[in-house]
Simulated assay, not measured.
Amino acid sequence: MPVNLKPACLFIAIILLAARVQAQETSFIKDINYPYLEKLIATAKKNYPEVKARQSQVAAAKGLYNATAFSWLDVLTASYIYSPQTSINISQPTIFKGYQIAISLNIGQLFSRPGTIRQAKETYKVAQYQQAEYMLSLEAQVKRFYFAFLEAQAELRLRSNAVIDAESAVKQLKYAFQKGETTFQIYNEQLNSLYNQNSFKVQAELATFTAKTNLEELLGTKLEDVK
């Protein structure tokens, strides 16, 4: 009895065509939510430990600059001498009696103080610039990880639909094979295709969870907690 391959071949062609159309329509660009992305960036800037470290560095540099800027009095040293009214110092006679205040000026510190202040100010500026640079870097990293997560989700949807299509094709070819309308080779090739699609789906699942983990590392919290 001759085997009629036309129905099976026609069905496979339809499946492949549907898969191609589906692949063309699959895109993560439509999934981008920019207001939500801004929330993710704000969450990362609030929670990520390196951000807090940068803030502490800026605060420390600012405190050092303020302390240095108001340290002009360090060049002056004040002391007092007490000479009793009734005592007479033959070796070092003094004209004034009672308490006497003496003020000394450190010339070296006086001339070096402006340079010290400028250095502290520049250190404060560097800390601010480094903090601003890191904030920009963190924002870009959050965007990259967010886009990678959406891409992984889109790939997972594509692979999941491909598995559904492959399962449907296997069922149809199994029925056609049992009726003698197709060959075992065609049926077996579709089984292999189903296995491959399942393997691709597992890889897409791993990529999705990895992308989600990378994003949550920057957020300092679960993605589901960001509303």
Rank of each mutant, 00 (worst) to 15 (best):
E139T: 06
L73V: 06
N106H: 06
Q85P: 03
Y48M: 07
R118E: 01
A67I: 10
Y80R: 04
F149C: 07
T77F: 02
L150Y: 08
S79N: 01
P49G: 05
S112I: 08
F145W: 01
E50P: 03
V126C: 05
A132T: 11
A44H: 00
R113A: 02
F149K: 03
F111A: 10
N89Y: 10
N66T: 04
V75R: 09
I95S: 02
F147E: 01
L105N: 06
Y82P: 04
T116P: 12
K62I: 07
K121V: 00
L110S: 01
Y82I: 05
T116L: 11
L73W: 14
L76K: 04
Q130M: 15
S71L: 04
A132Q: 15
V51T: 10
A42L: 04
D74P: 01
E139D: 12
W72Q: 05
Y99R: 03
T116F: 08
L76R: 12
S104G: 08
I103M: 06
L40I: 06
Q57K: 10
L136M: 09
F147D: 11
K39G: 11
Y48S: 04
P114S: 01
K143T: 12
L110A: 12
Q141H: 11
F111L: 12
R144E: 14
G108C: 13
A148H: 10
A69D: 09
R118Y: 02
L64F: 14
A61S: 08
T94D: 00
E38D: 13
Q100W: 00
A44D: 02
G108A: 13
S104Q: 06
E133G: 07
L150F: 07
V126N: 10
L138A: 06
S79R: 00
E38W: 15
W72S: 05
Y146P: 02
N47F: 00
Y124F: 00
Q55W: 01
